[in-house]
Design a protein around this nucleic acid. Structure first.
Lengths: 220, 220
DNA sequence: CTAGAATGACACTACATCGTCTCATTATCG
DNA sequence: CGATAATGAGACGATGTAGTGTCATTCTAG
């Protein structure tokens, strides 16, 4: 547990929903920008790139579209990120870090954590990210590890912490199978686009069930 | 070597990253083929397409490479399958059916079946197929359902049959969570290319463990 | 206030690749 | 034994897109 993690600039506005990016000031002015403007523009490009890549995949997405939606010219985009590959990698890394930060903000019982994890891993954002990384794992072999380290691994670690604190050290090893049970077939179907994400109520119910199956139900 | 005639540099050397093309009878003869030859050629194209698509993904794979490796001309390939999309869909469907047939040939105890399933779902072929379908699920929305129906769904159904026959009807509902536990985090990591497939011994051991966790160990 | 950094606008090059077309050739089928 | 279907060979057109060059313009930095 790297307790004091690196200070990450919260420049990225977590695009909770994909539909639109109206939160962008659409400032298309010329001339040399201030340092703040530059950071904002970079974050904006990354957010738009996420949307476009999620919608069309790496191959289907075009730089022109990213530039157009982000309200910058290709010239600027290339000045910031070099090329399409670098933009893609930067976008994935940025998002993975954001996911990691999100995951670090939970508190509560093991039951609540479990339900929370179920909801999170089924979210449009994480599922889409997973699909993208799987699809391009041949071209970008470093991305799967980044995603896993910041995603599943953190979830499992947090489950382990709670199990140890609330159920005893001897059950800590159940964190990983618990995670598998929490996701279950539903998540596999979700990755394939066959099932919608569960409601919070469904997630809570499933979490209770999974904890019961593994002998981790409250009060023992 | 190329002393006399005009040295024509091949505009692009087909980068066959495709591993070991199966002994393809390089019989590249002209003329009208017999019905058997036609069927064989079609199967050959599908087999080659699988390897090429697995190696490069849908976007990365080129028709030229498929045609070259399959030892047919693009002309023939298009005559058989119409276009790249149709070839891709035909290839996936063909493979899914094959997978389904494989899954129908198991017999033995629940323990053996479980271990067998673990090995199978971690195989290069199925993992690659999964990646392809996930990657192109936006472009080809019908493929995920085909894959799931012929893959996971059959595995779960077979587990349910064995549970009912060997453990009693009351435990049949555990087939799905059992499947999730059998795959576990290892399969998620495998999909991301982070872990090699398990050995048969590891699979058997993990199967025993999973059955035990769910109270499905032999002789309850 | 000045220098020059950064950008918009956008034409333009380079290149890959899908899918078609032409022609000669071969073998099957009626 | 023709008529013709099917193929090999490979050029070719059409299309899309990554990435660059150029020039004027705007505005920060110092």
């Amino acid at each position: 547990m790297e307790g004091g993690g690196p200070v990450v600039m919260p420049s990225r506005v977590v695009a909770s929903r994909v539909p639109a990016v109206p939160a962008v000031p659409a400032v298309r002015k010329r001339g040399r920008p201030t340092a703040d403007e530059r950071r904002a523009r970079e974050a904006q490009i990354l957010a738009v790139a996420l949307r476009v890549f999620l919608a069309s995949g790496f191959g289907g997405a075009t730089i022109d579209e990213v530039a157009a939606v982000a309200k910058v010219t290709k010239r600027t985009l290339y000045a910031y990120f070099g090329d399409k590959d670098a933009l893609f990698v930067a976008m994935i890394k940025d998002l993975a870090v954001g996911v990691s930060l999100d995951a670090a903000t939970d508190h509560g019982t093991l039951e609540a954590l479990a339900a929370n994890i179920i909801v999170r891993v089924h979210s449009e954002e994480l599922v889409g990210l997973h699909r993208l990384v799987i699809a391009e794992s041949v071209r970008f072999p470093e991305l799967p590890r980044i995603l896993y380290t910041h995603g599943d691994a953190r979830h499992i670690a947090r489950l382990a912490e709670h199990i140890r604190a609330e159920r005893g050290t001897e059950h800590e090893a159940l964190a990983e199978p618990l995670f598998s049970l929490l996701l279950g077939e539903r998540h596999r179907r979700r990755l394939l686009g066959l099932t919608p994400p569960p409601t919070p109520a469904q997630a809570a119910e499933h979490a209770e069930w999974a904890l019961g199956v593994l002998g981790l139900a409250r009060r023992r």
